[in-house]
């Protein structure tokens, strides 16, 4: 019995040690001097160089904090946009019967399948036509598409979750006189919290880590986001600041980690369907 009780924590601790080792190594390396990062493979630095954090933060004309603020802005807006727009589309696909539903659903899945690298140029040309490229607020190409539920991944995610919600709840509501809009408002919306939280977490983290699109559309150092700024440390043909790069990478993990810890609680509390009766 004790063995059984110990099995779970033991497994978890061992597993997390393995999973976390590379990250601990990264943390350790963020305190190594450039020369040590390249030559010393052990976790701990021989000489602690906390200066990496200060150097990394102040490495550019613009403080690294600015890049974090920009990233947070883009990621935050993306989260809101995705949650709202994808939820609407998902409700239609998951619960409502309408003409061509199967067709549109297949198209939606289809948009997930095309490798993005061939879309960059056509998209750039298109957004330029819209007048979204450059200007004082260059983030439009990164955010407006999310307002229109173009991130099919999240639509599909929410569809799958909604289909796990018993249909009886809708029907009870319908019998009580709810229209499809009422069902959405009073049944689906409150029950979609796990799906919404998952969507929020993923939107935030993916946007926080996205490189290629942000690279293409942001051209002003002051407007750069963290992933674009992180690459500035390493110019492989010349000057490279590996230590500060590690330091800033560690720092850029912090907000996403906190975001996750804050929101995962909402996943775990779960939903109490019986509380919604009546």
């Amino acid at each position: 019995m004790t063995l059984q009780r110990l099995a779970r924590p033991l497994t978890l601790v061992l597993l997390s040690a393995v999973v976390l080792y590379p990250l601990v190594w990264m943390l350790g390396s963020s305190f190594k001097s450039q020369e040590e990062v390249l030559n010393n493979m052990s976790v701990l630095p021989n000489v602690w160089t906390p200066g990496n954090y200060l150097d990394g933060w102040n490495n550019f004309d613009v403080s690294f904090g600015r890049f974090f603020v920009n990233s947070a802005l883009v990621a935050g807006l993306t989260v809101v946009a995705n949650c709202v727009s994808c939820l609407l589309a998902a409700y239609a696909f998951a619960r409502l019967k309408f003409k061509l539903r199967g067709f549109w659903f297949a198209i939606m899945i289809g948009t997930l399948l095309l490798p993005g690298h061939v879309l960059i140029v056509p998209q750039f040309v298109m957004f330029k036509t819209f007048g979204w490229v450059g200007g004082d607020w260059p983030y439009a190409p990164l955010i407006v598409p999310q307002l229109l539920a173009t991130e099919a991944f999240f639509v599909f995610l929410m569809v799958q979750f909604m289909r796990g919600v018993p249909r009886e709840l809708d029907e009870a509501a319908t019998i009580d006189g709810c229209t499809p809009y009422g069902v959405f408002r009073h049944v689906i919306l409150p029950l979609s919290r796990p799906a919404l939280v998952s969507t929020a977490i993923f939107s935030f983290i993916w946007t926080w880590n996205d490189f290629f699109r942000q690279l293409v559309y942001l051209s002003d150092l002051e407007k750069y986001t963290a992933p674009v700024a992180l690459t500035l440390f390493i110019d492989s043909s010349g000057q490279s600041s590996v230590g500060p790069m590690f330091a800033m990478s560690v720092l850029s993990l912090a907000p996403v980690f906190l975001f996750f810890v804050a929101f995962q609680r909402m996943l775990v509390e779960g939903i109490n369907t019986s509380g919604l009766k009546g």
């Binding site: 140029v121 040309v125 690279l215 051209s219 500035l232 390493i234 492989s236 043909s237």
Partner: peptide
């Protein structure tokens, strides 16, 4: 001047994209 700089990772991807957009 409107100055833009990048590390060489992604530099030529961006330059090519801008060129394709006549930009």
């Amino acid at each position: 001047f409107k100055k833009t700089w990048q590390a060489n990772q992604g530099y030529f991807d961006k330059l090519a994209t801008l060129t394709a957009g006549n930009d």
